[in-house]
Design a protein around this nucleic acid. Structure first.
Length: 843
RNA sequence: GCGGGUGUGGCGGAAUGGUAGACGCCGGGGACUUAAAAUCCCCUGACCUUUGGUCGUGCGGGUUCGAGUCCCGCCACCCGCACCA
């Protein structure tokens, strides 16, 4: 027996803080890059410091934490850092609404959130903490930006923004609601500004090919990125116009060229601009198209509108003249900004042609004899054979496309071309709270980079947010400087960088943080690539693609020798909660879980008892008030119960519905484990073969499940072994199983595990203990249950020794009374035997 | 609109094409208790003519000895769409 019997109840209020302090003082989770151990870099997407840790963060970081702690137990030197994606719009919004400084607001938020993370007991190396809003971080980012500029990967061009004509400011897409500014309510316009771009398109092919090697990324994310990059092989060709000009168009479907019934150009296409010059109706139409937001979703769901320019375009094969329209659904950014429209086989063209009464010829059909089949109210974009298409008739579409390209090239009026959907990355933001773009505008010398020895370009602190627009632009002194070239008066660039730039290299800075450079390549090479990256699916495209691009770009300029930053990616689901609401005065009013008394079938307000409606289970959000506060639940249940809840039940890639009953169950389980840990007896004698087998199976299964990030399954295994150990008689095996349970639970419930480890007199911290070994020979059972089916339906089960012969299993099956009754004398035609699993009798 | 995903008991979910519902929550019954809390034990997909049987994995088809799993067509919900992070 141990000398120190455990207290009857586990007290997280005491234990959590005690062990958090013990880890801190021992520097347990400080990563040593000089360690001889194999290295493992576990990273969760760093948070935006909004002020409070959200339960979704808790889930994300708990998953990474379990993996980090498990890897340590497996003998790895683990890097598990944390930092803050600290630039961005919410700080400026807070400044405008509450009159606080974005910097002060952000730094206070960071302090509060860091304290919250510490209370959950995460195994983080805080010595490497980063906040992107500090010059010690963004100054290096400016240096990297200049490196990319020197390599020709940065340029300026005009690009459209959402312009609020009342607030005289640029709006983010999320600030445009139904085409209007969120504060002013004014009709938003699309306006062109000079902006900075990164040449991500130069790496399009590489980024696409690289996906094929990212075997440990989810297929869905790779597919999304592939579609986003959007490589297409098509035909670029020129229409001869009735006005003597030529109009280049690009199409991915040259096989449908005989189905073109009109030509359409983007509203900002040169032809449209020219039309506007001498036709004020055309000019008005183009103005109309410029209203509303810039998002793809808005552009594509807007009603299809067009303006006939009166120009004709000569079809290269038929010689017929097709009308040229200006159309709001054609994008200047893609291909040549002009299309041949084939209404029969493209839905957008179909809607446009229907609206303007243009012909909708069929040029693809399932078979040649269906050449005159009518359309069922929509376009048919699919596969088939060409019809009504002259020399293409009867060819399959892919062969026809190749044929058209060959003829265009032979005739000299077009050529096969690869076009990418991916566009260059616009990084200019007309905002204060971001990394200043390190350039200077000089009347004589043009746009000049800030000399390296003048970095960092530091944001001024004395700014005001009383008037809309960019505070850097109207700051009295900040932008005025000397030109590094001629020494004359010049102005700083007042745009700041997209915050996606900040998050495109923070994982490098975590691995290595010299003062004089962004990172040390040798130090980075010790840790990178990140072995396991964990974050939300909402980042599947932009953040992950930009980080991949940035890493490749750094490799391209010789700063790194690897191209992919994240070897393995995992995307976790959201934490959700049902909503509670009442209709009051015709409006739906939401109530928070604390305000509601939830019974099994109904719910009512605690104050007053009025019934509330239990709504759908949705993502937690402030507007729906269905949020729970991590501090509150840790206070009530302890960090380990909260961590256990985050891991239980729902598979990590799916949504996790928060429930009060669920967390209560988790808290009960911590006490149940605690009682079991109190029954550890170092002097117990005797062997328990059945329990031993279960223990070895559990150790192997939990390890496998954690490595696969199937935490919910690991949790189920721990429940099973707990139940088995509770029911077993005292024996040496039982004590061994109890000790094993402490170790299996250690990554998930580290405070409880430490407390039990210590109380039972084990040496050191359990965080430093090795993962328990298992005997592979004990993983399989000698007796197996065989299912006996008749015509695929279960009739009986029998037990048989593992590895029993087919003949023996057949005999067992046919001997079954239940099976014989089911067959009822019918002739057995066939018997299918799956060894160690089942026998299926076919009659 | 386009791209991607998800759908299994009252609930979260488990299941290399091979016994559907492991494990947990909720609920029901019981033990202990003066009582409660805590704890422990048992039951818990639906239906029927209940020592047995039928149905059942969003809906409709298909492949197979056998389909939650594979194929085709739908439906609903969720994520992303380039200035939210």
């Amino acid at each position: 027996m141990t000398d120190t019997p455990l207290d009857a109840r586990f007290d997280p209020g005491q234990a959590d803080a005690r062990w958090q302090r013990a880890w801190d003082e021992a520097g347990t989770f400080v990563a040593d890059s000089d360690s001889p151990k194999p290295k493992s870099y576990v990273l969760e997407m760093f948070p935006y410091p909004s002020g409070r840790i959200h339960i979704g963060h808790v889930r994300n970081y708990t998953m990474g934490d379990v993996l980090a702690r498990y890897k340590r137990m497996q003998g790895f030197e683990v890097l598990h850092p944390m930092g803050w994606d600290a630039f961005g719009m919410p700080a400026e919004n807070a400044a405008m609404e509450k009159g606080v400084h974005p910097g002060g607001w952000t730094r206070a938020n960071i302090e509060a959130m860091k304290a919250q993370l510490k209370r959950i007991g995460f195994a983080l190396d805080w010595s490497r903490e980063i906040a992107t809003c500090e010059p010690e971080y963004y100054g290096h980012e400016q240096a990297l930006f200049l490196d990319l500029y020197d390599a020709g990967l940065v340029y300026r061009r005009q690009s459209e923004v959402n312009w609020d004509p009342v607030d005289m400011t640029v709006l983010a897409n999320e600030q445009v609601i139904d085409g209007r500014g969120w504060r002013s309510g004014a009709q938003v316009e699309r306006r062109k500004l000079d902006q900075w771009f990164l040449k991500i398109t130069q790496f399009a092919e590489e980024l696409l090919d690289g996906l094929g090697k990212l075997d440990d990324w989810p297929d869905k994310v790779r597919l999304m990125q592939e579609n986003w990059i959007g490589k297409s092989q098509g035909l670029e060709f020129r229409f001869a116009l009735s006005n003597g000009d030529q109009l280049p168009v690009y199409t991915t479907r040259p096989d449908t060229i005989f189905g073109a019934s009109f030509v359409a150009v983007a509203p900002d296409h040169p032809i449209a601009q020219a039309a506007a010059m001498n036709n004020c109706d055309a000019a008005k139409f183009i103005e109309l198209c410029k209203r509303g937001g810039t998002t793809a979703a808005e552009l594509e769901t807007a009603e299809k509108l067009g303006f006939d320019t009166g120009i004709g375009a000569k079809h290269p094969f038929t010689g017929e003249y097709l009308p040229v329209f200006i159309a709001n659904f054609v994008l200047m950014d893609y291909g040549t900004g002009a299309i041949m429209a084939v209404p029969g086989h493209d839905q957008r063209d179909y809607e446009f042609a229907s609206k303007y009464g243009l012909p909708i010829p069929r040029v693809v059909a399932r078979s040649i004899d269906l050449a005159d089949a009518p359309f069922a109210g929509e376009a048919e974009p699919g596969d088939g054979v060409c019809v009504n298409s002259g020399f293409l008739d009867g060819m399959r579409v892919d062969a026809a496309a190749a044929e058209v390209i060959a003829r265009a090239e032979a005739g000299g009026w077009g050529e096969g071309k690869t076009v990418w959907r991916l566009r260059d990355w616009g990084v200019s933001r007309q905002r204060y709270w971001g990394t200043p773009i390190p350039f200077i505008h000089c009347a004589k010398c043009g746009v000049v980079p800030v000399p390296r020895d003048q970095l960092p370009v530091i944001l001024p602190d004395d700014v005001d947010f009383k008037t809309p627009g960019n505070p850097l632009l109207r700051h009295p002194t900040w932008k005025h400087t000397q030109c590094p070239g001629c020494g004359g008066k010049a102005e700083r660039e007042t745009d700041t960088l997209d915050t996606f730039v900040d998050s495109s290299w923070y994982f490098l800075r975590f691995a290595s943080q010299p003062a004089d450079r962004p990172f040390d390549p040798e130090e980075v090479a010790k840790w990178l690539p990140v072995e396991q990256y964990i974050g939300g699916i909402e980042h599947a495209i932009l953040h992950l693609l930009y980080a991949r691009f940035w890493t490749r770009a750094l490799k391209h300029i010789g700063k790194l020798d690897f191209a992919e930053p994240f070897a393995s990616l995992f995307t976790q689901g959201m934490v959700t909660h049902e909503t509670y609401s009442r209709r009051e005065d015709g409006r739906e009013i939401f109530y928070s879980p604390e305000e509601v008394d939830r019974r099994s079938e109904s719910a009512a307000l605690k104050a007053g008892g009025l019934p509330v409606e239990i709504g759908r289970v949705v993502k937690m959000s402030k507007s729906k008030k269905n949020v729970v506060d991590p501090d509150d639940i840790i206070e009530r249940f302890g960090a380990d119960a909260v961590r256990w809840f985050m891991l239980s039940d729902s598979p990590p890639e799916r949504d996790l519905p928060w429930s009060e009953a669920g967390i209560e169950g988790c808290a009960r389980f911590t006490q149940r484990l605690w009682r079991l840990f109190g029954q550890y007896d170092a002097d117990a004698q005797g062997e328990d073969k059945a329990l031993s087998r279960k223990m070895h199976q559990a150790i192997a299964a939990v390890a496998e499940d954690i490595e696969a990030l199937s935490f919910n399954k690991a949790v189920a295994r721990i429940y099973e072994l707990t139940t088995a150990a509770e029911k077993a008689q005292s024996s040496a095996t039982r004590s061994e199983a109890i000790a094993a349970l402490m170790l299996l639970a250690a990554p998930m419930m580290p405070h409880l595990a430490e407390e039990a480890w210590h109380a039972n007199g084990f040496y050191g911290l359990i965080a430093d203990a090795p993962w328990p070994p298992h005997d592979p020979a004990l993983l399989v059972e000698d007796q197996v249950t065989i299912a006996i089916q008749h015509m695929g339906k279960l009739r009986d089960t029998v037990t048989a020794p593992r590895g029993a012969s087919q003949a023996d299993l057949e005999a067992l099956a046919l001997a079954s009374e239940k099976v014989r009754r089911s067959i009822e004398g019918a002739a057995v035609r066939k018997i299918i035997v799956v060894p160690d699993r089942l026998v299926n009798i076919v009659t």
